[in-house]
């Protein structure tokens, strides 16, 4: 059960999903508005480009609509949705934005030191450090830190064992600590 963002009325999510599966556009719109921001944020933290994140989120919701009958209620809808969104983002990054590389978005260590005085810039540096992470570790970190998913939820979303989630998360955090070492005092 969750609350409607606008009316505050309690809604039964499985019932909304069920209605959307039968072709109810209003129920689907409700799901889109409910998860829009979460999906955009996960993809944005993953790729670091707001426009790509929004486009990938839209593609993800279109795919969700097309494949809704295939969704089984045994798994969490959020996990299913994020898996689709991540796949959409990966497809976009690989096919449409091959030029978006880490080198382009990363600042040099000296630059980082200079700009770390401002909180906003520190956030930017953290975001860039996330993008520098390998894809597999990055998505685990984003799902954990941005969506606060449990290890089991992350495992379900990415279809990997919980042990792999733990090792990738550990690797991601260690790498972040190394990358952010020059601006450690500002964290």
């Amino acid at each position: 059960m969750f609350r409607d963002a606008t009316t505050g009325k309690r809604q039964d999510e499985p019932a909304i999903i069920h209605a959307a599966q039968k072709g109810d556009r209003e129920a689907f719109s409700h799901l889109v508005l409910l998860y829009r921001e979460a999906v955009i944020n996960v993809v944005y933290r993953f790729c670091g480009d707001a426009a790509v994140a929004e486009d990938a989120a839209q593609i993800a919701f279109i795919r969700v609509w097309q494949h809704l009958p295939e969704y089984r209620h045994q798994t969490s809808f959020r996990s299913w949705l994020f898996r689709i969104a991540i796949n959409a983002a990966l497809d976009m990054l690989r096919r449409e934005k091959p030029s978006l590389t880490i080198d382009q978005v990363m600042l040099s260590s000296t630059e980082r030191m200079d700009h770390a005085l401002e909180t906003r810039q520190t956030r930017e540096i953290v975001q860039q450090a996330i993008i520098k992470l390998p894809e597999a570790s990055r998505i685990v970190l984003v799902l954990r830190e941005i969506q606060e998913m449990s290890y089991q939820e992350i495992a379900d979303t990415l279809d990997i064992p919980v042990g792999t989630v733990m090792s990738r998360l550990n690797y991601a955090r260690k790498q972040l600590l190394v990358t952010l070492q020059p601006v450690k005092e500002d964290l």
Partner: peptide, 23 residues
């Protein structure tokens, strides 16, 4: 802990398009 706080400080974005346009 410091890293956790830094990651938590990342503010969510609301998207470039309004929810209505997005939908």
């Amino acid at each position: 802990l410091a890293l956790k706080q830094a990651l938590t400080s990342l503010q969510p974005i609301s998207g470039l398009k309004s929810p209505e346009v997005f939908l």
